[in-house]
Design a protein around this nucleic acid. Sequence first.
DNA 1: ATAACGGCTATATTTTTATACAGTTTCGCT
DNA 2: AGCGAAACTGTATAAAAATATAGCCGTTAT
Lengths: 206, 206
Amino acid sequence: MDELTLRQAEILAWIRARMAEDNLPPTRAELMRAFAFRSPNAAESHLRVLARKGYILLQGGTARGIRLCASAEEEIGLPLIGRVAAGQPMLAEEFREGALPVDPRLFSPGADYLLRVQGMSMRDAGVLDGDILAVRHEAALTLQDGQMVVARVNGEVTVKRWKRDGDQVWLLPENPEFLPISVDLQRDNLRIEGIVVGLLRIGGKL
Amino acid sequence: MDELTLRQAEILAWIRARMAEDNLPPTRAELMRAFAFRSPNAAESHLRVLARKGYILLQGGTARGIRLCASAEEEIGLPLIGRVAAGQPMLAEEFREGALPVDPRLFSPGADYLLRVQGMSMRDAGVLDGDILAVRHEAALTLQDGQMVVARVNGEVTVKRWKRDGDQVWLLPENPEFLPISVDLQRDNLRIEGIVVGLLRIGGKL
DNA sequence: ATAACGGCTATATTTTTATACAGTTTCGCT
DNA sequence: AGCGAAACTGTATAAAAATATAGCCGTTAT
């Protein structure tokens, strides 16, 4: 698929937004008004370019005959992250298992990505190996004791319950076979990758 | 909402189908062709009626300015069933807590409805009180030992693991504090309301 | 019986829309 | 310096679409 110029991307974005909003493709005149063009032909030629580059499909001779192409890069749903190597950023392409068609607004607050759970350290909270967590990016500031968080301690990603007392943070498992992780905010490198806002279990061991 | 005549329902159904298919409301002429009217006014007057009765919204003066009304398009997602009274059918309106925007194909095999779990009898399988199960309608014939099922024994709905030996069926909890339920297919009234194909936990106790 | 309505035909007319043709300007490229 | 592409203006025009008016026919309700 050909690259878009800045302006073309702007226009495509607007078309997408409009169609998401009221589910009706725009006319040339509407595009013209939205971008304050003084000629419908400005809209027309932009549409032609977008069609030539494969981002939209124009049905000739029909009012509002614009259709968005199902572009491969267009992400439906939320990205599903698998095993994250130590020290690597969470959303790096190489850890993605794909994407699931889940509405982010299903959870409250909304979810930003999905993470597959490894291990049984949260078993007694009903989180089993292989489960998928819905996670929301959130700053450490807003955390409250007892919340389930995705944390990164010295590079290693883990899911635990949060408990803080000054500079002393405890990451508590929900399984007596595991030991709490003690983190000193002064000495250790702690990063909150998000708070858990939901859980999804599909296939496998139900 | 006013009742529709047979013909009006046909036309509304066609409009819905068309919009589901290519996401573009029809014009009067297209409706006319689809129903072999010989006048666009036949389409026009039908649209007026549908609008008056509240099934669609007509935007005056715009090509393809037809929008399905909220109640019509609101049937997205899966119905969420809450506490089911003994002996009552599962999907009766009075037990519905609403609907969640979940794609049925997210699960495999696809889900037919969602059921909110009551109690802790499946705790050790990672199913907690308040969790939502994705359930698929399935005949008892296709069940295999160990599958998690939604069963109805003598009117009472319960979620357990399935185990069958001839006419003897065991409905096994996953929590030592609960006792297995013994069912004799000859004597007891057993009905399989579905097999569990997924689990969803949102809000509350994460 | 007659008025009201659903379901249409037939014809016109006005708006909206799509789309062609002829330019202008700006900018990066070679 | 000259070229081509992007990003437009300005003006038309034909086709598509919405919409009005007038009426026909059969069923149902008063």
